[in-house]
Design a protein around this nucleic acid. Structure first.
Length: 568
DNA sequence: GCCGTTTTCGGCCCGACTGTTTTCAGTCG
């Protein structure tokens, strides 16, 4: 039983208590206990065995009992009782932005709505309008949220798809039945959203085809709802595993470079490349390159040789979108793309000073140092740093710096850009900070471009956070005039970040490329609210590479003193 | 339900924003 499982159990109790209209302070107690258990350095199961669960601040007698029962039997009477009063799907409604526990309660009690489908139906029949506290606008927004969810419910984020693919490949490699295994498709190109994952496999020498396909088919046997074998032939096996569809291509070693190239795509890239090859009398397929006139077939050891034979420098997968990469590769004009190991510091992250932060300043600093970074800009939400707390935080930063030297924590903040375009932090405070990020968090449809431009004009603002505010699984972002913002950011030296949260990846690739070409400074940041989330940097670097960015163009590939001089 | 303590109850984070209201409740972060 992991702390995470215990925490999600407590959180579920909190949700149901809230829907049932229980005392809000009890609700909060369960919520806080969940958070405390989740971020506790101690193993909850061990503490339970020692009878020492109440040592976790936020866990008292009552919640201790709930946890003990849960560890013992995998359930708790408390939650069972709460759940029995409602349909099991009721909490699905909370996924719609603008719908919280109170609205769920009303929807259920007044209209008997317990599923997303019923909710949509009721909206279409204007039945929400009759409810107290609901109106036309609320109903429209719910419909919008439902449509967004429907459109993307089958999609997976970069982080999920990558983790699923790596796990599956690990199992196949350990089976000893394959000599080569590589992620291909849009995942290899570092895209944002995925319907499925493509993997190219080469069986081990001497392995029978049937053994290879059987090993892949076995991946489907994982027991999650909807998982299973979708189809299996000699060269292609499709499975659904952990909710993720994976297509495996099993190819002989001599076809591997061509198959990897072919299945990596993009389709547009391949079409353009093949058309150009055709004009030169060559035919390219996933099996090889043929000289049309003589019928001579060329094979290669890797993609590199394939591209070289066709007259191109090697094109990194992230650039294969038919967006100018073929011409550049022919003219040796491809950029040397930034790599994960180039990063020297983190420039947007949170600590426990933000209510949603899970690690202390020192824990974040130690973890960043362990990643090989030399600095970290602490950018807690301005909201939590009022009335002297900002100064108190500076004191803690100073204390931490004394302990972690030569690593350095810089004074930063994530200020909110209000609906009226003003920042929610006084200039006097901003002027004493090393690094100021300004971000939109609300009112995305209220003149977002003008508000961001206003923030850029503030001389204390160093960077705009998550440009559009999109949440890939929840909402599309603000429609901003990227060209105007990029132009002004370049003129003023204001940075525009690539926020690496798997759910954001904001700026998106085409916008980041535009910014890079305009000479805007672009930090790749994780917006980490925990130690583990510092690892999101990998996804941000993928996005930066898709934007054609070099190490030079990514701001935090430099040590802090150099960045400080650039900001001065 | 938890915490703290001036030890047995009172207080529990809060500001911004939206949409519904016409002074406020719900949601979000």
């Amino acid at each position: 039983m992991t702390n995470k499982e215990i925490a999600s159990h407590l959180r579920e109790i909190a949700v149901y208590k809230e829907i049932s209209g229980d005392n809000p302070f009890k609700v909060r107690a369960f919520d806080q206990a969940a958070r405390a258990v989740e971020s506790s350095a101690d193993d909850g199961a061990v503490l339970a065995a020692e009878g020492a669960l109440t040592r976790i601040k936020g866990v008292g007698r009552g919640i201790e009992e709930v946890i003990l029962e849960f560890i013992g039997s995998g359930r708790s009477r408390e939650l069972d009782a709460l759940k029995s009063a409602y349909p099991p799907t009721l909490t699905d409604l909370l996924a719609i932005p603008g719908v919280g526990p109170k609205k769920v309660k009303v929807l259920w009690e007044k209209l008997g709505i317990s599923t997303l489908g019923e909710l949509e139906y009721a909206c279409r029949e204007n039945r929400l309008l009759a409810l107290e506290g609901f109106g036309r606008k609320t109903q429209d927004n719910i419909l919008k949220g439902l449509a967004f969810r429907k459109r993307y419910s089958e999609m997976h984020l970069y982080s999920e798809a990558l983790a699923g693919a790596r796990e599956a490949i690990g199992i196949l490699e350990r089976s000893g039945r394959f000599q080569l295994a590589s992620i291909a498709g849009s995942l290899r190109r570092g895209k944002t959203y995925f319907k499925d994952v493509d993997v190219v496999l080469v069986p081990a020498r001497g392995a029978r085809v049937g053994d290879a396909t059987a090993a892949v088919a076995a991946l489907a046997d994982r027991g999650e709802e909807g998982d299973g074998l979708i189809g299996a032939g000699d060269t292609k096996v499709s499975v659904r595993r952990g909710g993720l569809q994976m297509d495996f291509r099993i190819v002989p070693p001599e076809s591997y470079p061509f198959s990897l190239q072919h299945f990596t795509g993009s389709k547009e890239h391949n079409v353009a490349m093949r058309e150009e090859a055709q004009r030169r009398g060559l035919s390219v397929s996933e099996y090889g390159v043929t000289v049309v006139e003589t019928g001579e077939v060329h094979t290669f050891r890797g993609e590199q040789e394939l591209y070289a034979f066709l007259g191109y420098a090697f094109i990194p997968p992230e650039l294969r979108e038919d967006a100018g990469e073929l011409e550049a590769a022919r003219a040796e004009g491809l950029p040397a793309l930034v790599e994960l190991r180039d990063l020297r510091g983190e420039m947007h992250c949170h600590s426990t000073w933000s209510a949603d932060g899970k690690a202390t300043i020192e824990e974040m600093a130690v973890a960043a140092a362990a990643r090989g970074y030399s600095f970290l800009c602490l950018t807690d939400h301005s909201h939590y740093l009022r009335e002297g707390r900002l100064q108190a935080q500076w004191q803690e930063i100073e204390d931490v710096n004394a302990r972690v030297t030569p690593f350095r924590v810089l004074r930063g903040i994530e200020a909110n850009i209000r609906a009226n375009g003003e920042l929610d932090v006084a200039d006097e405070d901003l002027s004493q900070l090393d690094w100021v990020v300004a971000s939109l968090h609300t009112s995305f449809d209220r003149t977002p471009t003008e508000r961001i431009l206003a923030a850029i004009e503030n001389p204390h603002v160093d960077c705009i956070g998550h440009l559009t505010g999109r949440r890939l699984s929840r909402r599309s972002g603000a429609e901003v005039d990227v060209e105007r913002i990029v132009a002004r950011a370049a003129e003023t030296g204001t940075a525009l970040e690539i926020n690496a949260q798997p759910d954001r990846l904001d700026m998106r690739d085409v916008h980041a490329r535009l910014a890079g070409e305009a000479g805007v400074r672009i930090p790749v940041t994780t917006d980490a609210h925990s130690v583990a989330a510092l690892g999101y940097a990998e996804f941000g670097i993928g996005q930066a590479r898709r934007a054609w960015l070099t190490r030079e163009q990514v701001l935090n590939t430099r040590a802090w003193p150099k960045i400080a001089r650039m900001l001065a």
